[in-house]
Simulated assay, not measured.
Amino acid sequence: MAIEEWKEIENGDDDGNLETQLLMKREEGLEEDEEEEEEEVSSRRCNHMLYLSTSVAVCGSFQFGSCVGYSAPVEAAIREDLNLSLSQYSMFGSILTIGAMFGAITSGRIADYIGRKQAMRMSACFCILGWIAIFLSKESVLLDIGRLLTGYGIGVFSYVVPIFIAEIAPKNLRGGLTTLNQLLIVMGASVAFILGTVVTWRTLALTGLIPSFTLLVGLFFVPESPRWLAKVGEEKEFLSALQRLRGKNVNISAEAIEIQDYIETMRSLPKVKLVDLFQSIYVRPLMIGVGLMMFQQFGGINGIGFFASETFASAGPSAGKIGTIAYACIQVLTDYN
C-alpha cells in the first residue's frame, strides 16, 4: 500500500512537498477507516431490532416445516383412530401441497396489497384454523380441510417470509439472514418428526399452533418492511421503520435515498406481462429454470418426507422410530452444511 502511494505521488503533476502529500493521503485513509468503523458500529446497533424481526418472521418458516413434517410420524395412529384407508390417508398427506400451490400463487399480490406483516398474520391464522380442524377431526373430511388450510398458509409463508427478511436486512447481513428461512423450515420438519414419535397425533397438532401464535404476538413488536412502506408512499412510516431497524442514533439518509431511488427506477420500467416470458430471448433460461424445479420435485422428496415413518417401519418394528429420528437429524445437518 505504501509503495503504491509513493508511486502515485512520484508520477503526479503536483510539484508540492512529497511528505505533505503523503501525510494528506494517510489522513484520507484514516478517514475512510473511521467511516468503515462507524458503519460496523451502526450495524451492531441495528442488530437488536433486526434480529428480533428476523426471529419473528422465521416462525413462519418453522411453521412451514411443522406442517410438512406432521404427516410422517402420525400415519399409523391416525389411520387406526379414524379408521382411514391408505388412499384416504394418502389424500390427507398430499393435499397440503395443493393448498400450498394456491397459497404461493396468491402470495405476491396479497403481500403487495396488505403488506408483509399483514400477509404473515393472515397466513398464521390459516395455519391456526387448520391445526384446530385437524385436532378436532373425527373423520377424513375435516382432517383434509385442516390440512388444506395449513397448506394455503405455508404457501403464503414460502414467499412473504424470505421477502420480508431480505427487505429489512442491510446488504452486509442480507445473505446470511435469508438463509435462516430454509434452515428453520428443515428444523420445523425435524422437530415434528421427533415429537411425533413420543406424543399422540392430536397433541402434535396442538404443538403446531405454537409457531403461529408466537408469530402473531411477535409482529406487534417489529416494524413493517421499509421497502414496502416506501413502495406504497408511506414516507413517514418508511423512515420510522428504517430508523427502528438500524438504530436510534444511526444516520439512515443514504440508505433511505438508495431505497427510494430503487423504487422510482422500478416504477419507471415498463410493466411486464406473463406472456412476455415466452419471447424467444427468454425461452432457453425459462426452460432451464422450470425444468430444474420440475426434476427436483419429480425426485419424490416430498413423498419420502410425508410417509417416512411407515417406510422405515416396513423394514422392521424397531426401525420406525429410529429411522424417523435419524432422518430428522440428517435433514438439519445436510441443510446447515
Rank of each mutant, 00 (worst) to 15 (best):
residue 174 R to E: 09
residue 80 E to Q: 12
residue 249 N to Y: 13
residue 55 S to V: 05
residue 246 R to T: 06
residue 124 A to E: 03
residue 112 D to M: 06
residue 16 G to D: 11
residue 39 E to P: 07
residue 277 L to P: 10
residue 126 F to E: 15
residue 115 G to A: 15
residue 88 Q to V: 07
residue 271 K to F: 08
residue 321 K to I: 15
residue 205 A to F: 02
residue 33 D to G: 04
residue 210 I to M: 06
residue 201 W to I: 02
residue 300 G to M: 03
residue 209 L to Q: 07
residue 336 Y to F: 15
residue 66 S to L: 06
residue 102 F to L: 13
residue 77 A to Q: 14
residue 267 R to M: 01
residue 5 E to K: 04
residue 204 L to F: 07
residue 226 P to I: 14
residue 195 L to W: 02
residue 225 S to Q: 04
residue 286 L to D: 00
residue 224 E to S: 07
residue 55 S to R: 02
residue 15 D to G: 15
residue 173 L to R: 01
residue 85 S to H: 00
residue 6 W to V: 12
residue 56 V to T: 06
residue 100 A to R: 01
residue 144 D to L: 10
residue 264 E to T: 06
residue 36 E to N: 08
residue 6 W to M: 13
residue 240 S to H: 08
residue 154 I to C: 05
residue 274 L to I: 12
residue 302 N to L: 08
residue 261 D to G: 00
residue 233 G to I: 07
residue 280 S to W: 14
residue 93 G to F: 03
residue 175 G to C: 10
residue 303 G to F: 12
residue 231 K to F: 01
residue 304 I to N: 08
residue 178 T to L: 03
residue 35 E to Q: 05
residue 28 E to T: 10
residue 281 I to H: 11
residue 79 R to E: 13
residue 158 S to Y: 06
residue 3 I to S: 13
residue 173 L to Q: 14
residue 262 Y to W: 05
residue 46 C to Y: 04
residue 107 S to A: 14
residue 308 A to E: 06
residue 109 R to S: 14
residue 123 S to Y: 11
residue 238 F to R: 02
residue 187 M to Q: 13
residue 325 I to Q: 10
residue 121 R to N: 13
residue 235 E to D: 05
residue 252 I to G: 01
residue 138 K to H: 10
residue 24 M to S: 02
residue 199 V to A: 07
residue 333 L to M: 15
residue 99 G to F: 11
residue 321 K to R: 15
residue 39 E to K: 14
residue 79 R to P: 14
residue 158 S to D: 06
residue 108 G to F: 08
residue 250 V to Y: 00
residue 329 C to G: 10
residue 147 R to N: 07
residue 314 S to E: 09
residue 215 L to I: 10
residue 73 P to Q: 10
residue 220 F to W: 07
residue 124 A to G: 03
residue 21 Q to E: 14
residue 17 N to D: 13
residue 203 T to H: 08
residue 126 F to Q: 10
residue 165 I to T: 06
residue 318 S to E: 07
residue 26 R to C: 10
residue 146 G to Y: 05
